[in-house]
Write a protein that binds this DNA or RNA. Structure first.
Length: 611
DNA sequence: ATAGGGTTAG
């Protein structure tokens, strides 16, 4: 004779409630008690306090066994608990089997999908709820708006804005913060500001939504101004508000201001907060102080994948690819799993430093070993990497064989490589594809025209210029920034608005003379580069970066580094000129352009003339 | 019974 354990009798780690409703113990328990309020309340509180998914599943199955799924309170509670365990699909199964879901349950589901990043489904549910005749309430709108923000769907966002006005929710603090957030995430900062200005009550999150919206849309000065305004309104900043100002300081490259906020964050007690620490470290690196960034990085306890990735990325943009790789190895050894951003940072670091073999190895490794499948941005890094190494044919093959559809930026990388290697045939073909995908991007037109100019094909240069005028390309004005005396000085090309202009221009002329003696020859190939299209050598010498540098030489202490931030790529002629300037005035000149850092010192640049 | 703003790359 054999005996078999039934399993159901003595489950391990089962909650007392489950033990009590075990059918072998008391099968009539639920049948007799299911209408009892006391029991419903008891189960409800069990569901609420349920701290393990396993327990929740057990309670759920018991509810089914005893036919309690018709008790809407328990059923809703179960769905809610599934959402809090991020099991949105299990919750959705319950939801779909619910006859007339309450507003509460609808809201829970809309929230669940929104917080899981499944924005489309979340909005679909919102629409279904409206369709079913229920009035959306002040709890529904923040989640629905979050989904619009996640999708950058401005049209839908505007519609929901209309809805919330008609359903009388337009004075709710939460709803308004979500509106501000939605508008800024859809890139509509001005409308966000209108909403913000109309708010009667503004709490910390309202302010932070606006500040963060400014920061993420590169309204950097406004970010800093709003932070001061918030403090002036007696709202005390927290860690999240600090992240935005750090981001803005990094964007602007304002080291002193950044130091001030760093100090502030220490005094406010956020020194060991991993988010703030990462933002501070990143700020220093983005202001050109890579070493200080590294120092803080080393001091940070409990570094997560974001912190590691940020440091790897910073080594990359400073042209220290080997350091980036070393850090990546340390990160893996420390047991932190890299993600897709880590690999973007690592591959772009390899590309900036010309580490072809290493880049190719990590590109392979990312899917083989780390199970991360390359996305468009990873392919973009690889095209850059191959292009820099002069492997234009391989780069083109890679693009053609990618499993993802290439966009204009991928082809743009290849076009950049064509400029460096003077490959006109390929450039023309690639430009054709780019202009199909993105007809009004000024930068690619300029790039093509520079390629023609380098071959003295002036007719074609003129044609590209006409093409740009005909299509009305989105021309971006180049400018350079320098921080001095708690101000940011912003120079455009040929800018004469600064009171010290006479001195600045005189210094540049003086420098030009010394540069020529040292062998500098202006390269007019770059007249169109950087979209600052003055066609003469004179214009070259008054590019915004040179004005900012001259300002720096005049006003800062001799021997100290000069830090410049530029909103576009530095032009080839300026790059060569600044090398000479660094030697003549014996200063370290750190220029951050849209792409990377250039540390000019003693006639050389850290980028090795590739950028 | 439900709530919001968040660091990394391109």
């Amino acid at each position: 004779m054999t005996t078999r354990h039934l399993g159901l009798l003595k489950p391990v780690h089962v909650h007392p409630f489950i033990a009590r409703c075990n059918p072998f113990v008391n099968s009539s328990f639920f049948c007799t008690c299911k209408t009892s309020n006391r029991i419903v309340l008891e189960i409800s509180s069990l569901l609420e306090g349920c701290s393990q998914l396993n327990h929740l599943k057990q309670i759920h199955s018991k509810l089914l066994v005893y036919g309690l799924q018709h008790n809407s309170q328990l059923w809703t509670r179960t769905a809610t608990s599934y959402v809090s365990f991020a099991c949105i699909d299990s919750a959705n199964l319950l939801f779909e089997r619910t006859l007339n879901p309450s507003s509460f349950l609808w809201n829970i589901m809309i929230r669940g999908f929104a917080t899981q990043g499944r924005f489309f489904l979340s909005l679909k549910l919102y629409a279904k709820m409206l369709h079913s005749g229920l009035r959306p309430d002040k709890f529904a709108f923040p989640f629905a708006l979050k989904s619009c923000a996640g999708l950058s769907d401005l049209q839908m966002g505007k519609q929901i804005h209309q809805h919330l006005i008609s359903f009388a929710c337009s004075t709710d603090v939460f709803v308004n913060a979500a509106l501000v957030d939605m508008y800024t995430k859809c890139g509509n900062v001005e409308t966000a500001r209108l909403v913000f200005d109309k708010m009667r009550i503004r709490d910390l999150v309202s302010w932070t939504s606006m500040i963060s919206g400014y920061a993420h849309n590169s309204y950097n000065i406004e970010t800093l101004e709003f932070f001061d305004l918030m403090r002036g309104s007696m709202v005390k900043p927290n860690r999240v508000s600090l992240l935005s100002v750090m981001l803005a300081c990094g964007n602007l490259g304002v080291l002193r201001k950044g130091e001030w906020f760093h100090n502030y964050s220490i005094q406010a007690g956020f020194q060991s907060d991993i988010l703030v620490a990462t933002a501070v470290m990143d700020m220093y690196a983005k202001c050109g102080s890579l070493d200080l960034g590294r120092f803080l990085f080393d001091q940070t306890v409990g570094k997560d994948v974001v912190c590691w990735s940020a440091m790897i990325a910073n080594y990359g943009i400073h042209g220290q690819g080997r350091e980036a790789i070393g850090l990546f190895t340390q990160m893996v050894e420390a047991g932190v799993n890299p993600n897709h951003v880590t690999f973007t940072s690592l591959l772009s670091a390899c590309s900036h430093s010309g580490l072809l073999g290493e880049g190719q190895r990590y590109f392979e490794l990312m899917s083989k070993e780390f199970r991360i499948w390359p996305e468009l941005k990873h392919y973009a890094c690889m095209v850059d990497l191959l292009g820099r190494a002069g492997k234009l044919f391989e780069a083109e093959k890679l693009i053609e064989n990618m499993p993802v559809e290439p966009d204009s930026s991928i082809w743009g990388s290849l076009l950049g490589a064509c400029r460096i290697y003077g490959n006109l045939d390929l450039a023309e073909r690639v430009a054709g594809k780019i202009f199909n995908l993105n007809p009004t991007h000024a930068g690619y037109h300029v790039l093509l025209s520079n390629i023609y100019a380098a071959k003295s094909r002036w007719n074609e240069v003129e044609k590209v210029r006409e093409m740009m005028a005909g299509k009305g390309t989105n021309k971006i004005q180049g400018f350079s920034m320098i921080e001095f005396n708690n101000h940011v000085y912003i120079f455009g090309v040929g800018d004469r608005s600064h009171p010290q202009s006479d001195n600045i221009y005189a210094l540049l002329e003086e420098l030009a003379a010394s540069m020529r003696q040292l062998g500098y020859v202006p390269s007019t190939n770059f007249v169109l580069h950087d979209i600052e299209d003055e066609a003469k050598e004179v214009a070259l010498s008054y590019h915004s970066e040179r004005l900012a540098i001259a300002f720096g030489i005049i006003n800062t202490v001799p021997g100290t580094p000069i830090r410049i931030t530029k909103n576009l790529r530095i032009c080839g002629d300026c790059h060569s000129a600044i090398k000479f300037i660094s030697k003549i005035v014996n200063r370290v000149i750190i220029v951050r352009d849209i792409h990377r850092f250039h540390h000019f010192k003693d006639g050389m640049c850290s980028c090795g003339d590739y950028w």
